[in-house]
Design a protein around this nucleic acid. Structure first.
Length: 605
DNA sequence: TTAGGGTTAG
């Protein structure tokens, strides 16, 4: 859109008349007032015409006229990025020399519009002109980037701040490190932390605990330990949350001796004590590992030490009991919750999903009814969990009953509900029927999301249904939805299913060179394809290249390769892989047990 | 201002 508008406007006519009065010197003050009024009313094009007319006055317009133009525009309540950029280019076009206020006014406008990326460019330009943006300007921009989760921009703002010797405040640093860690950008979080540690007072565990937790949650306990020890060496003092992260990391790997060791060290060496969250972490890890008896012992120990379990602790145990179908124990614990004056919540309701998976549908539904009829509010996620389990158990009648309960209980379904139903239809009926549902229903999120498309695509790919795959791809194109890593992986599986290995490999190569970046599921899919086609060498090559893709093999990767190596009778490779998997303490025990039996047979035929 | 519990696609 052009900012200069036609010269036949009434504004120019009225100015012509002004010039008639005094052709050599139009009234500058009048022009300025008119320009300001027009800008305030949002007529930016007309205002610019007057701005140009000022050039007839010697020494005008000045940068102050220009700044006043932007200022009035910001007050017009019609601020848009397009006009603002137009104004900026106008400044360049007329070769006006901006001052600090010019830039600050622009930044104010961009902040109003939430345009952090453009604001960063303006700041860089401001610095190039020799002006220094203020601390609060950069600090506010950093906050804006973090609020909108534009983390790469946030990092850029931080660099600009550090370049100007501005040290960000601790809450902003915590927010940045926390956001980076939660988004899988732990490496960046570490770089930020160590950089700031050198220049400011950022030794608090509140600053670095998110990094520690992120490492422990992403299966990097060795990295977490190294990080933990390096900080200790530097004299930083950990708190109970830091130690709990390590407890979690060890517990997830099934290393409970080490987890207990952490408890001892934190008391003896760290001068702090485990709390209810620390104990709950251990209990959760024991439950996840199927060690329910030990989890109950830990619960007893926790009570003995004077910590009253809260509803979170009880929900975790309930969930584990329900997965083991221990109905009597569930009822006992459920009553204990009431006896202790605690109220069951959404998580309590979902904890019974194990019963549904085990076919104990009536009991699970009764318990859900009990919670719904108590004072607790039950949310849509609870119904989604039940619906998902019922569909998975192929209990279609009960699924329909659940949907009617949802309506009756006044629960508004979300896209997850609809995607769950979509998957259910795919499994019970045909992909055609699923597509019918897909196009017929009014999606709660206004339109189907990525998962909706992938749900149908996945089923079509699994069935090797070429027509249906094409239909879904066309539908995605019509809607302007691009295939993501899940869609690509589905298509790789499709090509493998129809025996077209070449196209499957081509897709993978496309992902490597043009994106989307493959995930571990993609790699494992590729591994299965290669091993199925007796291409163990190629599979091993991919495995060796994983680091260059920024990925680490998981238990499934090892399982696939170990099985293929065994099938090919490659004992050397089998042993090598088993050794690495054991060293990494990966939970592919079933697979490793098979290897041991196999090797024993080889040694003693 | 950091930490523990549930749901959809590969």
């Amino acid at each position: 859109m052009s900012l200069s508008s036609s010269s036949s406007s009434s504004v120019v006519q009225s100015l012509d008349m002004a010039e008639e009065d005094n052709p050599h010197c139009p009234n500058y003050g009048e022009l300025r007032t008119k320009m300001q009024n027009l800008t305030r009313s949002g007529s930016i094009g007309k205002a610019l015409e007057i701005f140009h007319l000022m050039r007839n006055v010697s020494g005008k317009p000045t940068v102050y006229d220009y700044n006043s133009l932007i200022n009035c525009y910001l007050k017009s309540n019609k601020v848009g990025l397009h006009d603002l950029c137009g104004l900026y280019f106008e400044m360049k076009r007329v070769e006006l020399h901006p001052n600090a206020s010019t830039f600050n006014t622009f930044l104010k406008g961009l902040s109003l519009l939430g345009e952090s990326k453009v604001a960063i460019s303006v700041i860089v330009e401001m610095c190039n002109y020799g002006f220094t943006p203020s601390f609060s300007c950069l600090s506010n921009l950093l906050k804006k980037c973090l609020d909108s989760m534009e983390l790469v921009d946030g990092l850029r703002v931080l660099d600009l701040m550090l370049g100007l010797n501005y040290i960000p405040t601790e809450p902003k640093v915590i927010l940045l490190i926390n956001s980076l860690s939660r988004c899988g950008m732990t490496r960046d979080a570490c770089v930020v932390f160590f950089k700031l540690l050198e220049i400011g007072n950022f030794q608090s565990p509140y600053v670095y605990n998110p990094i520690l937790w992120s490492l422990c949650k992403s299966d990097q306990i060795s990295g977490a330990l190294a990080f933990f020890c390096s900080l200790k060496k530097k004299g930083l003092v950990h708190n109970v949350c830091s130690y709990t992260a390590l407890v979690y990391g060890f517990g997830q790997k099934g290393l409970f001796k080490e987890a207990s060791g952490c408890l001892r060290i934190m008391e003896v060496d760290g001068g702090c004590y485990p709390n209810i969250k620390t104990y709950t972490t251990i209990i959760k890890c024991l439950c996840d590992g199927g060690r329910i008896k030990e989890a109950l012992c830990a619960l007893g120990e926790m009570e003995k030490k004077g910590f009253d379990p809260d509803i979170v602790t009880y929900n975790i145990i309930l969930r584990a009991l329900s997965h083991k179908n221990l109905v009597l124990e569930i009822y006992n614990l459920y009553h204990t919750i009431y006896q202790k004056g605690l109220s069951p919540d959404n998580y309590t309701a979902t904890a019974f999903s194990g019963l549904l998976k085990r076919g104990n549908i009536g009991i699970a539904l009764n318990l859900l009814r009990d919670i719904v009829s108590s004072d607790s509010d039950v949310d849509v996620a609870v119904y989604n969990v039940y619906l998902h389990c019922l569909f998975r158990a192929r209990e279609f009648k009960e699924s329909l009953f659940m949907i009617s309960c949802m309506e009756k209980d006044g629960i508004k379904p979300n896209n997850i509900t609809f995607n769950t139903i979509l998957k259910g239809i795919c499994e019970e009926k045909t992909v055609d029927k699923a597509l019918e549902f897909f196009e017929r229903v009014e999606w709660p999120g206004k339109r189907p999301d990525m998962v909706s498309f992938n749900t149908v695509l996945s089923v079509a790919c699994k069935r090797g249904d070429s027509i249906m795959v094409q239909t879904v791809l066309n539908l995605m194109e019509d809607e302007g939805v691009k295939l993501n890593v899940v869609g690509f992986t589905c298509l790789m599986q499709y090509f493998c299913n129809i025996g077209n290995i070449n196209d499957c490999l081509k897709l993978f190569e496309h992902m490597i060179s043009h994106g989307p970046h493959p995930s571990m599921v993609t790699i494992n899919t590729l591994m299965v394809v290669l091993c199925k086609n007796r291409e163990l060498g190629a599979a091993y090559q991919v495995f060796s290249n994983l680091k260059s893709y920024g990925l680490s093999p998981d238990a499934r990767t090892y399982g696939i390769l170990i099985r293929a190596a065994m099938n090919e009778g490659n004992n050397l490779l089998t042993l090598k892989l088993v050794e690495i998997a054991l060293e990494m303490n990966l939970h592919c025990n079933g697979c490793i047990k098979n290897v041991k039996n196999c090797l024993l047979k080889i040694e003693d035929p």
